[in-house]
């Protein structure tokens, strides 16, 4: 999918640019937007580059740096926090051998915090791509990561 295609799909309006850029970013193996791509979105929408760049840096789901194939987003807002999201982070850091904000050497996983993903009823929770995983335990986390490792290779 190229920039023009995704914009056409979204009706090429400034208001739907966020959705278009997100979908485009998700379609890329490394989950980020390059300078050229950001400029292309500006050119196609007729918005100033400074504005589109402003959007990319304002909204937390965009990235300007290459990330892993799987972005493991751990919620740590209060409902998850009081249900042990700290332990979820520790478990993931141990399993993946990286710290929060880092990407594994094999380019498979990036570990990030996310603001609440609206899954407080299954706290602690995390989101990977389009999938939400709730009621996390160390065993559950291990099997999720194991499965993705297999699938991602």
């Amino acid at each position: 999918m190229d920039v023009k295609e995704v914009l056409d799909k979204y009706g090429n309006s400034p208001g739907r640019l966020l959705g278009a850029m997100l979908e485009y970013q998700r379609s890329k193996p490394q989950n980020y937007l390059t300078e050229e791509e950001i400029k292309a979105f500006a050119k196609e929408t007729g918005l100033p580059v400074s504005r589109v760049y402003s959007l990319v840096t304002f909204y937390s789901l965009f990235s300007e740096v290459p990330r892993g194939k799987y972005i493991v987003q751990v919620c740590h807002d209060v409902p998850c926090h009081v249900n042990g999201s700290v332990n979820v982070v520790a478990e993931l850091e141990k399993l993946l051998g990286i710290k929060m904000g880092e990407t594994t050497d094999d380019g498979l996983f990036t570990l990030e915090y996310t603001s609440c993903i609206g899954c407080c009823e299954m706290a602690p929770a995390m989101q990977i791509g389009e999938t939400v995983y709730g009621n996390l335990t160390p065993e559950k986390i291990a099997s999720i990561i194991e499965e993705l490792r297999r699938a991602g290779k």
Partner: peptide, 9 residues
């Protein structure tokens, strides 16, 4: 239409 946000409370 549906409009998507992109990560901003």
């Amino acid at each position: 239409d549906v409009y998507s946000g992109a990560g901003s409370y």
